[in-house]
Each structure stands twice: as structure tokens, then as C-alpha cells.
Design a protein around this nucleic acid. Sequence first.
DNA 1: CTGACGCCATACCCTGACGGTATGGACGGG
DNA 2: CCCGTCCATACCGTCAGGGTATGGCGTCAG
Lengths: 324, 324
Amino acid sequence: MDGFDGVLDVRDLRYFRAVAEERNFTRAAERLGIAQPPLSRAVRQLERRLGARLFDRSTRQVTPTAAGLVLLEEAVRVLDAVSAAARRTRRAARATPAVVVTAKPGVATDLLRRVTRAYASQPDAARVEIAVSGYGEQAGMVRDGRADVGLLGAGEDCHGLDLEPLTSEPRVAALPAGHALAARSVLSCRDLAGLPFPHCPVLPPHTDAYWSGRDVGEEEVPDDARWAAAHVPRGPVVRDSSQLLEAVALGQAVALVPVSLAERNRRDDIAYRPVRDASPYTLAIAWPAGSRSPSIARFVRTAIEVASHEPPVHGAGPHASFGE
Amino acid sequence: MDGFDGVLDVRDLRYFRAVAEERNFTRAAERLGIAQPPLSRAVRQLERRLGARLFDRSTRQVTPTAAGLVLLEEAVRVLDAVSAAARRTRRAARATPAVVVTAKPGVATDLLRRVTRAYASQPDAARVEIAVSGYGEQAGMVRDGRADVGLLGAGEDCHGLDLEPLTSEPRVAALPAGHALAARSVLSCRDLAGLPFPHCPVLPPHTDAYWSGRDVGEEEVPDDARWAAAHVPRGPVVRDSSQLLEAVALGQAVALVPVSLAERNRRDDIAYRPVRDASPYTLAIAWPAGSRSPSIARFVRTAIEVASHEPPVHGAGPHASFGE
DNA sequence: CTGACGCCATACCCTGACGGTATGGACGGG
DNA sequence: CCCGTCCATACCGTCAGGGTATGGCGTCAG
């Protein structure tokens, strides 16, 4: 009806995305490894084919229009799906295809171990590969095909994924030992408001690490200071639980952590206190929405099975609700 | 790391999909409107770039490998996302962007009307367009961008969509007036097992209608007889509730219908009977997973709001669980 | 057994799209 | 007012992708 046929191409979307995020044709062309004129032309052609202006090119500033913002959102989705297609196909073509599962380092490792063992004991189960990844990266890894299933904490953006809750446990506040609040025996969320919380790394959108999921490394990114200042919340950046605890112990932050993590990490320089109204920490297993892969399905079924037999954590409440 | 860069292209995926579904290069080329040799070459190049065999070309038969089946699933996802990107961008570029909502014809029309009215009454609300679509097509329409939000019945494949349940009501059996079971006052699912149920149209995968979502029309598709015979379940094909009721009245089928539909369609030639263990009919609102569109968000919020004020249908139970 | 047909692969040519270089024009800062 | 920045245009060369012709192979009918 509206000839959607050759209108959009992966290349066009990569180009468009680069411009939309850099807000600068020259830098975008650099990032893409091409010259600037072909990029300008490609974007104009795209605009013509779509019949929609995508950028307002007022002098000194190129900003996406409303339509451009819509396309940016869709483009990210498409590009993730394309990467996932390539990666999953290659993986499926290997002599012994593996199920790649990703999880936060140091969280629920024994659950993961148990699930993996139960899965592997089944007849003709696929090999299991564990891909550790930093906080908050699990969903992205499943989305773009670097992993087949992921163990996500609640609060991760799980769009495009199907998921099933596995375990739920209360969270407690982790405070520096000398903190004023450590004197009290029980806290509420209000007590913690305004304190510096640790957070996952937020990478500037034009670094390679942002795209590939690799670490940003130590190369300097002079122009990013503004961006970082605008987007990074207060508190130290942490990538895993040991960094998080270290940050707390050093007095740089307070944090809400699952009680099991607290129990495994009793130390003198950190005080754990229950928080009356904190939402529980819920761990869920996620896989690409609508996947029909038998090995993924079996792994998920095994995980649910094992988690349901799991001895419930002391004081665990009902499952938290997911989604934002 | 693994150079996913130019490996996959939308064109390649369209070509691959055609071959994977037709299982025949010549017919696939026809469908794509190109000659056969370029298609063969494109697929071979794709296999080389991926480093994976996608088809077993034994003589007289071309069948996808395991990797090919994986790619097929991913390709559909990508192509839907690409169509959605083009459509949504174009829609967003219109002078007065509209929110397109799709719903089954004849189901929950008054709920939809109420939601639409409530939404429209808000300040700077977008225009609302209603796109009616046949049974079972709503999810696809949201996925590929023909619609922004959809009212889905439970049981629709909602992968790739976020959704929120709106209403839930019991279902009753609709029987031809003279049917033996009509003599009983209450039934159970076991009584209905094995009877012919109506079903949504299942289109052969290489017709245009299958791809575009348009109706198949009356052109003849001689070669599809085999396919249809293999894939179409028993019972008549229906596209909306009036066709469904007609099929029941004519004695061609029995059906489980929401009680509200039964109440609005009392007629002599149909007997409605409660079914003790039938799962309730749950209506949910669905939107593209992870969408950040403010107008969609507002529409969804309005819908949830309105539905929660809705007078509960007589005997409505708790929400059914979604997912497959 | 053999000829005809169906189906995929190869060979070859041609067009056009994409990328690079050079350059122009507009706006803003010093 | 000049210079720097940044996007657009012009022009050109290369190669990928599509078309036509043809070959090889297997199947089926007679």
C-alpha cells in the first residue's frame, strides 16, 4: 500500500543513527569511517524516500525533528535485531551450538550454577556458555544476540524480551560503618532519599564501547565532558557488586542490595540495615521475545523448575512487578 | 569483535526469507520480482559472509538448515522492525500525527469508544485513528507499525509487545440451538474437546496478503491446496464476530465467546451455556515494547484508567495470565 | 532406456549506486 | 572583517547487483 519496500536499509539506519546521536554530520562521518559528503547525501536521500524531514539543519546545529526522534528509536531496534540475527545464526551454525547465558557477576551465582548443572544433565542438552557482563548490560546482550538468555535484576529495561520471575528476596541498605543512619536498627526509603547512590556506567553515545558493549577503556574523550556532566547521576560508577561494596565501604555511597549479597559479604566497614518499604530484589530469566528455539525454551524451563525448588531466602516476599 | 558490520542487509534478509519460506529458488525469485540467478548468488554470498550454510540443496529439495531456521526467525523480526520504522516515521512526520489503534471488530467497542473519548478530551491530545483488523491480526499490526497500540485478546502472540491487561470476563460456549450439549445447563471444557472450532484465517506464506496484511481476495492460488490442507485446522474460517456467530448458528462450529458478546447477540438459533473451567477472556492493550512515545504512553494510561473505572462485567474473574 | 522438464549454478555484461576529492556558501566568533 | 566550522553540491571512478544465456543434474513419463 505505501511501498515500504526498499525505503529503508540497514546502512541508512546506521548512518542516520550516527547523525542523530552525534548531532553533527562531520563527527558522525568520522565515526562511520566515511567522508562527510556521502553521509550528507545518504541522509538527504533517506529523507526524500521517506517523504519526511528528519533533521532541522539550522546553522551551527543539527537537531532531529519529531519524526527523526521516532526513527531513532526504531533504528536502534532494527540495528539490535540485525546484530542479533547475524550472531545467533553464526552461533547456530557451529558444530556444537551453545546456549549463551549472561548474568551479573557475583549475583545468584549458585542459582545459576544449579540451573546450569540441571540443564546439562538432561539428554541432548546444548553446551552452556556463561557470559559475564557488567551491571545493566544483560538486557542489551540478549537483545543484540550476544547472549541467548539472561538473568536480569528487576529494573533493567526489558523491552523486546520475554521474561519470567525466578526468585525474589528483600533488599537491605548497605551503609558505611560510621554513617549516622547505621545507628538506627531499621530504615525506610525516605531516610535514604537524596543520598548518593552508585549507578551503572553510562557511556557517551558516540564511543565505540557504547555500541559494542565493550569497556570504554582509558582513551580520552575530551568533548564528552559536557555530555557526561548532563547525563551521569550522582554517586560513584560501579560495574559489579565488589566495586559497589567498595564504594559503600569508602563512604562514597549508600546502596540497596539483596539480602543474600549482604549475608555473603559481612564486613566491619559496612553496616547492613533492613529497609521497611524497599521493594524486593527480583531476579528474572529473560530471552528474546517470541523465540521458538527449543534449547532456549528448555533452559528457561529448567531455570524455573530449579528456582521453584530453591529454598526461599529468609523473609522473601511475593514477586515484584516488572516493567517500568 | 566479530565484524557484524555489513554482513546483513535488509535486502539479503528479504531474499533469504523468500527462499526459506518458498523452499524453492525459482518461486522465491518470482515473488521477489527478480530473476533466479541473482537470487541464488545473493543467498550464496550471504552464506559466505555469515560463514554458515543456510540451506541444504539436495536435489529436488531446498530445506533450511538449523542455522537457516534461526535466521528465518530473526529475519522476520528484523523485517517487521524495518517496516515499522518506515511507517511510524512517516506517520510522525504528518502535520497532525495520529495515534493509530487497532482492535477486533465488534469486541469491546464501547470500551474503545470510551477510551478514545477520554483521551481526546485531554489537552493537546493527538488525533486517534481506528484501524479495524481481522481476528488475530492486531499484534502483527502493532509489530510492523501499521498501528501504534492494539487491543488484543489473550492468546494472541504478543512477542515484541508490551501489554497491560484491561478487562477480564468469563467466556461461555456458543452452540447451535439444536445441539445436544444445549440441553445441559452448564458445560466443561472436556465436553467441547474434539468439536470443530472456528479459527482465524491462516494464509499461505507466499501470497501477497500474507505479507501485507491485506485480505487474500478471491484470486486463485492453485498450488496452495497442499499447503492449506496441511496447515488449516478443522472448522470454518472467520474474520470477525458476526461471521463467527453465523458459523455457529449454521451448525458448523461451537465457540467460546466472551459473555458480553453473548449478551449483545441473543438469538434463537444460538444457545449460550456457561463453561465451568473455561479461562476468562482477557482484553489487553499492547504497544511496541519499549516505546518512549508520549502520545502512546498517554493513550495507554488513559485506557488503563478508563478500564479500571469500567463497571466490572457480571462474574468477571481475576486477570488471566498472559504469555504463551 | 531415453527424452523432456524442472531446478539450481555459472558466465558474462551492463547499469547505477555509493564512496572519495574538491569546492562552494552560510553563519558565528574573535 | 576575516577566519574557522560545518553542511551542501559537483564530478568522477569503482564495484555490487540485476539481467540474459546456458550448463549440469536429477526426476519422471512413456
